[in-house]
Design a protein around this nucleic acid. Sequence first.
RNA 1: GGGCCUUUAGCUCAGCGGUAGAGCAUCGGACUUUUAAUCCGCAGGUCGUGGGUUCGAUCCCCACAGGGCCCA
Length: 526
Amino acid sequence: MTNQDQQEQSANSPEESNEEVSAAGEQKLIEDRLAKAAQLRDKGFDPYPPRFDRTHTSAEATKLFEYVEVMASNGVGDDAEHPRTETVRIAGRVMARRGMGKAAFIDLKDGYGSIQAFARQNTMGDEAYEIVNLLDIGDIIGVEGSVIRTRRGEISVEAQQVTVLTKAIRPLPDKWHGLQDQEIRFRQRYLDLISNDKAMKNALLRSMVVQSMRSFMHDRGFIEVETPILVPVAAGAQATPFETHHNQLDRDLYLRIATELYLKKLIVGGIERVFEIGRLFRNEGLDHDHNPEFTTIESYQAYADYNDVMSMVENMVSYIAKETTGSMVLPAVEGVRPEIDLTPPWPRLDLRAEIKKQTGIDFVETRDVESLSAAMRERNIHVEAGSAWGRLLDKVISSEVEPNLVQPHFLVDYPVEMSPLAKRKPDSDEIVERFEGFVMGTELCNAFTELNDPVDQRDRFEQQEKQRLDFGDDEADRLDEDFLVAIEHGMPPTGGLGLGIDRLTMLIAGEESIREILLFPAMRNT
RNA sequence: GGGCCUUUAGCUCAGCGGUAGAGCAUCGGACUUUUAAUCCGCAGGUCGUGGGUUCGAUCCCCACAGGGCCCA
């Protein structure tokens, strides 16, 4: 139907014209609310006023009343039978409304909790009370009045005045069931935060994790820095980078996949304890514990080795758990995990011995792709065709060893092929001083005694570049000439660490999906 | 990349080869101490999108898209 047809038809059906046209569904709800905003304006009330002087949060108002009530019970105050506070001004979002004609109860929610407001026409006056009839669930309002306890025992602000601070023109999700639709929860996280306490709890936990991590590091004399996100070479880890381009410099750049190499340049520069908390970007798929952008802490400590880092990690993680939950023992979560005890020390497991124990494979005896592949096939471990040796062993570890590590453990001493930035053990050409921390069957951190021999480091990079060519391995690490020049000037012996903050928060929150922790996880186009 | 599940009113969910249901929210009415307030009444839907089968498809089949879970 063309526009003209539609116009002609509506002209022919006058009952459908103008304000008689009833908009469908969601649009109708929006129009109803816009109409109420217009009515507020007609009565001289700005539905979006610039300022409201709040004197108390919901929590403070509740606390104030409880204090007054205790004093009244001791005979202090004008009316010991009906204690009431001084006038307070609170503000928050209308979460529920129970109207009774000339009185109404409103559940208000602010950033600190909830409190009920109680509005009566005869206390407010007819004109002021009209605002109450124009309120919708979702509106943000201010309420002025003293705090009392209602007959049913609910601490409530008895409204002298109600002010609309922000008229909401879209409805909130179901007040009882909350927001269930996972897609909307992730795409419109603000609705999740409003409707579901758990979403807010996780968001606050994430902040507390980062805060306590920072204070742990600062207490130990670490300096926090920020290094480039746009980098000419995406090195320092084995991952595929995002590519971008700087127009004026006419130069291709990448989003960093690690902060490692820049931080080690700062170690060369003499900042002996340094860390960065920041976003990394890896161009890979999404699943319950991967997101293309995620946050890590990396730290580097001169004159330390991986044993020092190991004890720092177990101390840091248990400290953060204690600070954020009050205990180093995380409670069991039904259907997710048993109780997790993060109290140090965490068991150190020799990687070679552990693989041998779980699979019978000794990676020192199966030192090439052919023999390792054969040993894997014998044990029904999937062999990805065309994989480098290190990738195959990584598969053995992730499928046969990691799942058993539910309580915190360190796997210690990795083969050199998997670890191009780690220093060899003094007594071995094949094994490096590297460990990874595991909890709940997933990797939490990765750390090593940093390779500071510039000749060996160049050789390792070259082997990674060769692996990229020989095996078509896009994720092989990249040679970074600037970094090599830096350590050719001399990097002291150093212990380094990388730890995923989103995964650490998942662990503490008892969540199985990183999407419950990231406020705005990556989503497909709609 | 493969398999399974899922998409119905603003939200939470039923449903069925014969043309759409509930609760909450909205709208109208009653109600001055409620708290999932209560009571009465009304309205609200391209049943994810596009094809196919059929006299007839929201339902069966196929493809695609979004979301979830498992595997690779």
